[in-house]
Amino acid sequence: MLMLDRGRELVERRRILWLLVVRDLKVRYSSSALGYVWTILDPLMMALVYWLVFGFIFDGSKRGIQPYILFLVVGVLAWQWFNGGVMDTTRALQQESKLVRSTNLPREIWVVKIVLAKGAEFLFSLPVIVLFMIRYRTPPTWDTLWALPAALVLQAVLITGIGLALSAVTVLVTDMQRVVRILLRVLFYLTPVVYSIHVLPHAFLRDVMAVNPMTGVIDLYRRCVFPSTELGWHVPAISAVVTLVIFLLGSALFRRLEPAVLKEL
């Protein structure tokens, strides 16, 4: 019930939440000369590198779906939201410590605003995918109508859950930031970003992969661009359940550590 209360408080304060999201974006785009270009340049360069390494040197283009570069861009952009969101929410409370200590807002707001600001950046980068789709004459699938919103919501909830847990723990254990950085790097290769989940030989292995919620999220995004394959819906379904569990655990942990965290800030 307490969790519902917190959720309602956040909804009541949505104007302030919006203000913080806009502030983050403003700072992001006004403090660098290239601004918006970075939003798309960074993931594009990464996609290009993966394309060279895995598409040419290893000739692993069979491991993805053609056109491989489009396949990569979708995965890399989604991963960038996840990666950036988790990294930034880890520091969420410390970064805004002065505000946390001087304004009486529901503390979850500092995590949620980062998730939304990073999500907005992800939306801003979607035109890149559209350009690639035009270049390769790939029209969006009908699944897009619901798979895209589902993926966006699922990913936002996932990052919020992880961010709530990590932001609180990091205040108490400062080393956490380094641990998170390493884990994210490992998780990148355990998530089907540069390869497709289809390359796994057994349905059972695919289900194991789906326990990593980003597998399902990226699968949903890819359904928007590539016609759906013989794979059923249980990969996104498993990921959705895991996401929900992570969210509930993260919120509970945040609430539990809150008094101690406020003393340490």
């Binding site: 403003k26 700072v27 200590r101 001087s102 304004t103």
Partner: peptide, 12 residues
């Protein structure tokens, strides 16, 4: 009136 300048951002 605690940490008065806490909400301000240097870049804006």
């Amino acid at each position: 009136l605690i940490e008065l300048t806490g909400g301000f951002l240097g870049d804006l």
